[in-house]
Design a protein around this nucleic acid. Structure first.
Lengths: 209, 209
DNA sequence: GGCGTAGTGTTAGTCACTAACAGAAGGAAC
DNA sequence: GTTCCTTCTGTTAGTGACTAACACTACGCC
């Protein structure tokens, strides 16, 4: 097994680092859920994980990063790049985000819910999330351009931004419903709204009395 | 003139307050442009304006608020509510945002440019801006619902979020072009991308070689 | 002119985050 | 297994945004 996957790399040092990181993150999330994000200091998290607050900042650049840092974006960007070039940009975004979200949803639904709710209900975390959204948007736009270099870059950026907004809205509604709804269905519905932006839903026209 | 407009309300106290507020904001923006946002402390701003740092925080809840607080959102929400009910949601958003942006653009183009660039190039300010975006989105969604109560609320939220993303993209590109482009045209183009999301621009179909 | 009520300054404190240095522990070479 | 280097970690001290408490000043009403 030459040059195996991530875990086999294992010096004791690497393993310890990974464990410390997980420990900090786990204790942080637990404390955030118990006492709220603002009600928990970095010092407390570090103490709970048995490290100093400096070590905390060596693993996570900011307090927010403990919650916000998921590694999903590159995965989804990969899915976008793999969509067939015949597909228009919005469809490619739709399918790739659907697929990516579905994976996370199947594997980690509860964790996704808890973390998303925490982010949406904490102003500081929401701010951070939105700030990262810009980077995500550029990542997706890059993947789209790579797939179809001839397409108008401005168009691509607008659609990438709008798609992220749609997914965020779906996530928000999902959390507002206490996670009862089916997230992939909400994402589909959101993209449906983007897809037929004029008029109402495809086959349902409301009558304004 | 019973109960007149804002300026006539004038005790000396009110006038002083307004003036202090303007003074703090003006000095802050000047210092931000000179030394950067992060390179300017609240203490320096307060000193420049001839007040203590506590007074600064009594006028602006955070350092970011000095830059980000524009009062445009309610004006645009008003424009949305006034659109004729026959218009579909996206068109109403398009026209209202167009109109609102155009007003600001005509009246305060340079200030808008400077402030927008500052926000887009400063991570802390971008975060704050995005955070407020959520409130803006709810405001716009409320205006749309008021105009047409029968429409699907989820649809409305998605379209409001997507429209804001489109406008933000337009603003970003405008600033990236050093303000040379025509902002209203960019906003129109962005909404064009949203409006015909599948396939390319209306009459221009690129050929992927 | 006297008095209540803002608006303000001072001081001291919390918390996120950083820089500098010192010590401990992993890992490779012999 | 000892030596030496590298990496990780803790301690300390500091900055800067933001808050609470209290005392003081000056507006504005009578």
């Amino acid at each position: 097994m030459p040059d195996g996957g991530a875990p086999a790399r294992g010096g004791l040092r690497e393993r310890k680092k990974a464990q410390t990181r997980r420990s900090i993150q786990a204790h942080a999330l637990r404390l955030f859920l118990d006492h709220g994000y603002d009600g928990t200091t970095v010092e407390e998290i570090a103490a709970a994980a048995g490290v100093s607050h400096m070590t905390f900042f060596r693993y996570f650049p900011t307090k927010e990063a403990v919650v916000v840092s998921d590694g999903y974006d590159p995965m989804i960007a990969g899915l976008i790049a793999e969509r067939p070039p015949e597909e228009d940009a919005l469809t490619a975004l739709h399918r790739a985000l659907d697929e990516g979200l579905a994976r996370v949803y199947e594997a980690d639904r509860d964790a996704l819910f808890v973390r998303t709710r925490l982010v949406l209900t904490t102003p500081a975390l929401r701010a951070r999330q939105w700030r990262d959204q810009h980077a995500t948007e550029k990542l997706f736009a890059g993947a789209l351009t790579e797939r179809r270099p001839a397409e108008d870059p401005f168009r691509i950026r607008v659609l990438a931004a709008a798609s992220l907004a749609a997914v965020t809205t779906a996530l928000t509604v999902w959390v507002e419903g206490e996670g009862a709804g089916h997230l992939p269905a909400l994402v589909d519905e959101a993209f449906g709204a983007l897809r037929s932006p004029c008029g109402s839903a495809p086959r349902q026209r409301e009558e304004p009395n």
